[in-house]
Design a protein around this nucleic acid. Sequence first.
DNA 1: AATAGAGTAGACAAATCGGTATACTTTTGT
DNA 2: ACAAAAGTATACCGATTTGTCTACTCTATT
Lengths: 184, 184
Amino acid sequence: MSQKRQRLLDTALTLFYQNGINSVGINEILAVSGIAKRTLYIHFPSKDALVFAALQQRHDIFIAWLKQKLANTKSTNEVIHSLFSALESWFSNQEAELGPFRGCFFINTSAEFSDINSDIFNFCHHHKQQVRQVIADHLISNNSELLEAMCIMKEGAIVTAHLCGSGKEVTANCIKILEKLETS
Amino acid sequence: MSQKRQRLLDTALTLFYQNGINSVGINEILAVSGIAKRTLYIHFPSKDALVFAALQQRHDIFIAWLKQKLANTKSTNEVIHSLFSALESWFSNQEAELGPFRGCFFINTSAEFSDINSDIFNFCHHHKQQVRQVIADHLISNNSELLEAMCIMKEGAIVTAHLCGSGKEVTANCIKILEKLETS
DNA sequence: AATAGAGTAGACAAATCGGTATACTTTTGT
DNA sequence: ACAAAAGTATACCGATTTGTCTACTCTATT
């Protein structure tokens, strides 16, 4: 609807993802976006509401990105390769839509919001379920053990790439491991 | 040395781990520990120094806990079982030394401190390397692919248990997957 | 041309942040 | 026993936090 609202949201998401939510104040978002404080509080009743909207925005972007990466996969092996190649590309900052890699926004956010019953923490959980579903939809065979393995290794790869910075080796190892599982 | 210093550190670690570092103020730590502000700043020059000391404390506790859990393992298979049984026990709050489970303190902390070159972020990286080394020391065979798989799945399991709350199924799946890898 | 809605700039409020200073008391080592 | 070190309580500092308020401007539609 409003282009100001959208610019606010884009700026907030970028800053939140890059620096962590608690480290980014409302005033910084206003300064970077060049929008007045009053305008922000017309569109979002509170910072938490802005955070929640940013999470939704990131969720939509990530799911769309993932679906596109998994499109046209015609076998389990192709899903494995497409998924972890995409992750590797993300880790090495070659996915413009996702911004400079700094781990998973939802893992990071759930680390800052400790209340397990809050809307924000709940949405992080919901996001992970949705991602799992997208992967599941692309697996022809109903191999739930392989699906589980892919999801666990995906989280492990994201965390490892973020903390240890070795993106390429990690994803290559994941592919190798999952291929062994697939054919066993 | 000083018992006050230790109490400060224990309180800080508990609160930081449970609520996130940026969500816990100096004053809260003082109120809970019942120690004067002046005393804190005698022992720690800044909040960041306290955070760093808390990370070191957690590191020592975690490494000791892990070594104990992996002690007396006599085969690769036993390492797999000991490691992921221990994790499952942690996830379901049965490991008093580690406190109520709220993910990995180092993953959580690195989510809050975005500067990759800071001492704090660096220590989180260092911790993960040390954990990997402890696991490696218990593997008789020099199977680096299995080691890598165990580390990736360990991170994946921690994140998944925290965000999705399904501790038991996750670790059971990890064990199943790793056993397949081991014997292939 | 008039009016309503969206936006701006910035002062302001109340709370909280990390950190310092002061004046005093307790503990500890020799 | 005495002196140094450690600890307490509390006031205070400047900066920063989210959020409110006022007064003004721009723009679009009827």
